[in-house]
């Protein structure tokens, strides 16, 4: 097998000068716009100055970040376990695979908004609704990626493994799982950014805590500065999680050329 099969770009976490410059240019432009707004016919609340945004950032309640993060991580772990377990069952049973694979693909085509409406109509509990939406959106990604990767493990390696007569457990633990680790990382990266975006929408509907809830409060108060602040939190959160994943990936995939 070509070692290239496992190669994919690892997002680097450098902060080049160009990034800083463009951020700075944007900040200056924004600040200028906030002063010019009244003369341009823009309502003053729409473009809050940097100072106002800074105050909003300072006023951020960490508990909401923790709650949202807990929901994301909890739902992702649940999705991962369910996806992996189903993928292993589908790997062992061709029949199950043939019935389930197209069904899961259909589920993946359902828009997030539909899932949120279903969740609101079906389930009374807020936490359960959010969890349901996240798992139903992220679970299939894990499942499809994992089963496709398992079926893509080279026949030569499977045959080699079989020739040494492993138990089913050994076959999965010593061959299939390590072979799909690169795919699992890719899947986690896709799902983390997906989950961060979905959780806020899900929290908009009926939650009394979390970043999504704070966003909806900010919207009711017409506070663009607060929306700005929470959005920055979300973006930073996503970057941090991706950074953590990349580090784990580098460590676990040392064997790659």
């Amino acid at each position: 097998m070509a070692p290239d099969e496992y190669r994919e770009p690892v997002p680097s976490f450098t902060f080049p000068r160009q990034t800083l410059v463009s951020l700075l240019v944007f900040a200056v432009f924004w600040e200028a716009l906030s002063h010019l707004a009244p003369y341009l016919g823009i309502p003053p609340f729409a473009v809050p100055g940097l100072l106002k945004i800074a105050r909003s950032i300072a006023a951020i309640t960490p508990v909401d970040i923790v709650v949202t993060l807990a929901r994301v991580v909890g739902a992702l772990l649940a999705s991962f376990v369910i996806g992996l377990a189903l993928a292993m069952a589908m790997y062992r049973s061709e029949k199950l695979h043939n019935y389930l694979h197209p069904m899961v693909r259909i589920l993946m085509a359902v828009p997030v908004v539909s899932w949120i409406l279903f969740a609101v109509l079906w389930f009374p509990g807020v936490e359960f609704r959010i969890g349901f939406v996240l798992v139903v959106v992220c679970g299939p990604v894990f499942l499809i990626d994992t089963i496709d990767a398992m079926r893509g493990v080279p026949r030569e390696l499977r045959q080699m493994m079989q020739s040494f007569r492993p138990t089913t457990y050994q076959f999965f633990v010593k061959l299939m799982l390590p072979a799909i680790v690169p795919t699992i990382f890719t899947s986690w990266k896709v799902n983390i950014s997906l989950a961060i975006r979905v959780v806020t929408i899900a929290e908009l509907v009926g939650a009394v805590t979390g970043i999504g809830h704070q966003l909806s409060v900010a919207q009711e108060l017409f506070s663009v500065a607060d929306v700005f602040a929470w959005t920055i939190v979300l973006v930073v959160l996503l970057f941090l999680l991706e950074g953590l994943l990349s580090r784990a990936e580098k460590r676990l995939l040392r064997w790659r050329p």
Binding site: E156, L157, Q159, S163, F164, P178, W255
Partner: peptide, 19 residues
């Protein structure tokens, strides 16, 4: 036959993630 038959294949078929 576990441990009683062993095989060398056409390509090395080593697991790339193992030393």
């Amino acid at each position: 036959f576990r441990g009683r038959i062993a095989t060398v294949f056409q390509q090395d078929r080593l697991l790339p993630w193992r030393t």
